[in-house]
Simulated assay, not measured.
Amino acid sequence: MRVILKLVVFAIIVSIIIPNIPHRVNASVSVSAQSAILMEQKSGRILYEKDANTKRRIASITKIMTAILAIESGKMNQYVKVSEQATRAEGSSVYLKPGEKIKLKDLVYGLMLRSGNDTAVAIAEYVGGSVDGFAILMNQKAREIGMYNTHFTNPHGLDDSKDHYSTAYDMAVLMRYAMQNKTFQTISSTKVYRSPNPTEAWDRVWKNKNRLLTKYQYCTGGKTGYTKLAKRTLVTTATKGDMSLIAVTLNDSDDWNDHISMYENGFKGFDMTEVLPKGEIDIEKNSDYKDHLFLKDSVVYPATNEEMSLFSVKYKLNKLSNSRGNPKKMEYIVGKAEVYLNGRVVEEAPIYYQTDPVKKKGLFDFVKEIFLSVFGVRTNG
Rank of each mutant, 00 (worst) to 15 (best):
G116N: 08
T379V: 07
R56M: 14
D255K: 02
F184S: 03
P350H: 08
K215I: 05
P350Y: 09
T62G: 06
K42D: 11
D254S: 12
P357K: 12
L137G: 01
K182A: 10
N380T: 07
I351T: 08
Y218D: 09
Y148H: 14
P19M: 08
Y193K: 05
D258K: 03
Y340F: 15
M175R: 00
M1V: 08
V334Q: 07
L47K: 05
L293I: 03
S309G: 11
Q217F: 06
S43R: 11
K228C: 01
F134P: 01
V173Y: 10
M262E: 07
H23F: 11
T214P: 01
Y353S: 05
S93F: 03
S32A: 13
A52P: 11
L293N: 02
E331I: 03
L295D: 11
V205N: 07
G325A: 04
E348H: 02
P22I: 06
V358P: 13
D51V: 00
Q185I: 06
R211D: 14
E369Y: 06
N53K: 15
Q34A: 11
I370M: 15
S15W: 05
M308C: 09
K50L: 14
K314E: 15
Q140G: 00
G335E: 09
M330G: 00
I61W: 07
L341M: 03
V82G: 08
T214H: 11
I68A: 10
S188D: 05
K63W: 09
S93W: 02
E144H: 06
V358F: 14
I71R: 04
A303E: 05
R176Y: 04
K360C: 02
A89S: 12
P98H: 09
L250S: 03
R2G: 12
K319F: 04
K359F: 01
A59C: 12
S161C: 14
P350Q: 09
N251Q: 10
R24F: 08
D132P: 11
D282M: 04
L234H: 08
T273R: 10
L341I: 01
E338V: 00
V29D: 06
E200T: 13
A27N: 12
E307W: 05
P19F: 10
S287K: 15
R2T: 09
K231D: 13
N20H: 13
